[in-house]
């Protein structure tokens, strides 16, 4: 599977491939582009990635999730290029015997992708301005650019 793609994410096709005879739970997370951020109206986003590093990192994150939970399916894809409002910028699908594992693993994977993978968004606002935005700011709290504060840690 291509972890980084400039093509539209086909959520329906990906979900169709994500059914497994031993899995009673399938969780699909789609990170959609919304029309507002920090009080400004967003026109569209443009994503850039260091493709080879981001791909390796996503593979590593998926493997780490497979070690932590008993998953039948774990996939993730992230867009590059222009992504419009309501389109999906990133998708994570996990499947497991029961829902607790699929939910927890899904949250772990998206959280680590957002903090760690060399992927960046540029927000283009309707007023014509643009901004490289939404940076991971964990270093302000951890004092270390390699240490992050993850949402999934709250639920483990």
């Amino acid at each position: 599977m291509e972890y980084i793609t400039s093509k539209d994410l086909d959520l329906v096709a990906l979900l169709q491939q994500s059914h497994h005879p031993a899995a009673g739970a399938v969780v699909l997370f789609s990170g959609d582009v919304r029309n507002n951020n920090v009080g400004k109206m967003v026109d569209f986003l443009e994503y850039e990635a260091h493709t080879s590093m981001a791909s390796k990192m996503i593979e590593r994150i998926l493997n780490d999730a497979r070690k932590r939970w008993n998953l039948n399916i774990a996939i993730a894809q992230h867009r590059t290029g222009k992504v419009r409002i309501t389109e999906s910028a990133v998708v994570v699908i996990t499947a497991s015997a029961h829902r607790a594992e699929a939910y927890a693993a899904n949250r772990y994977i998206i959280d680590r992708i957002k903090h760690e993978a060399p992927i960046w968004k540029c927000e283009f606002f309707t007023d014509g301005t643009k901004e490289w935005g939404g940076n991971c700011n964990c270093h302000k709290d951890t004092g270390n650019i390699n240490k992050h504060i993850y949402e999934f840690e709250d639920i483990l």
């Binding site: 260091h50 957002k114 960046w120 935005g133 650019i145 390699n146």
Partner: peptide
Amino acid sequence: RFAVHDEFVADHYQLTGSDNVVVIPPSSGG
């Protein structure tokens, strides 16, 4: 963060003239 050959390297990493160095700002994917 800085990377050489697709791997992150620490501040004390010894560079050579033939290195291709990538400079990686904090992630903002998702």
